[in-house]
């Protein structure tokens, strides 16, 4: 299409419109956007078609059918129906809310400690912490599952005795098992991200606080937290989406009988081909509703988190 180039000069209405129309990059870009959007759009359209319609024809036939319906949505959202998703929405929230707040808090403490408390071996401890980013989730899954449903025991060397460090706290099927796992896995990334920000805060702020007699606790609470809100928000969004959308950890830690989060629930529905396929459309959008709200309202912070933390493992 490089053949079509804008004629030089001329600023009449026709010329200006022509230049707009002959702007090849825009055309190509928007063609790609259409290609990128059609998959989600087609699912969205299908979520308003009933079972028979979905099973008979492709999505654009909604124009011929004239019987758009919200019954898929009411089916997955009304309590009591067999495909009710509300329980798993609650579970999703019970996982991702603590899995967002607690890592933020702990990582902010640690990031401040690494950045502004002077102690021996600080540099090496920090490098060791960040190096833990290299450990993939999968490596820790089996032992963590054993820990949550069996406790932690160690046979003491040279003796015939076994010591129990943690009794069996029976977290099988409990959302706590999932958010505890998320908290541990978020830690290296969160510390890295927040340390980047907190260590760049101006030194004078801390010196004057020190002179005024503030200890580390006061400095952290009164100065660092308010000043670090952008970084905290970036991480919060990143972590919230990560935990809300997680499938692997939830699928490992929670068994199918007990209540599972939305991702696992939908994946299970997807395995049940014929009967519930038409509900998947609505279910997928119900699941994606919260992430999309977060995404569209907080895109700036999300991008910042992504740019800073393009290393999360």
């Amino acid at each position: 299409m490089a053949a079509i180039t804008a004629p030089q000069g001329g600023n009449g209405l026709g010329d200006r419109i022509y230049q707009r129309l002959a702007d090849i990059p825009t055309w190509v870009l928007w063609m790609l956007v259409v290609v990128w959007t059609i998959p989600s759009f087609s699912l969205f359209v299908n979520s308003f078609r009933n079972r028979d319609a979905q099973r008979n024809d492709a999505f654009w036939n909604i124009l011929n059918e004239r019987d758009a319906t919200v019954e898929n949505y009411s089916d997955v959202l009304s309590a009591g129906s067999t495909n009710d998703l509300t329980d798993s929405i609650i579970t999703s929230a019970a996982i991702s809310v603590p899995a967002t707040i607690i890592p933020i808090a702990f990582a902010a403490f640690a990031a401040y400690g690494f950045a502004w408390i002077d102690f021996k071996g600080r540099k090496w401890l920090f490098i060791a912490t960040v190096s833990l980013l290299a450990i993939p989730l999968q490596v820790a899954l089996i032992p963590l599952l054993r820990l949550y449903i069996g406790g932690a025991h160690l046979t003491l060397p040279f003796t015939d005795k076994t010591m129990t460090f943690l009794p069996d706290i029976d977290l099988a099927g409990d959302p706590a098992a999932v958010w505890l796992t998320h908290t541990g896995f978020a830690m290296p990334f969160a510390i890295f991200l927040l340390h980047n920000y907190i260590s760049q805060l101006p030194k004078e702020v801390f010196e004057s606080a020190r002179i005024d007699g503030a200890d580390h606790f006061t400095t952290f609470w009164r100065l660092v937290v308010p000043l670090s809100v952008p970084a905290l928000a970036s991480f919060a969004i990143f972590q919230f989406l990560w935990t809300w959308n997680d499938y692997l950890i939830a699928n490992t830690m929670l068994d199918a009988q007990s209540s599972v989060p939305t991702t696992v629930r939908i994946a299970n529905l997807a395995g049940d081909f014929d009967n519930t396929d038409h509900l998947l459309t609505a279910a997928a959008f119900v699941q994606a509703f919260v992430p999309l709200v977060v995404f569209f309202s907080m895109q700036r912070f999300f991008v910042r988190g992504l740019l800073a933390g393009s290393v999360k493992g």
Partner: peptide, 20 residues
């Protein structure tokens, strides 16, 4: 934004989208 949007959806959601 529209090209970036799939980043906000879960892998499970994306799989459902593409199964269709």
């Amino acid at each position: 934004t529209l090209i970036f949007m799939p980043m906000a959806i879960s892998f499970v959601g994306a799989s459902i989208v593409w199964r269709l």
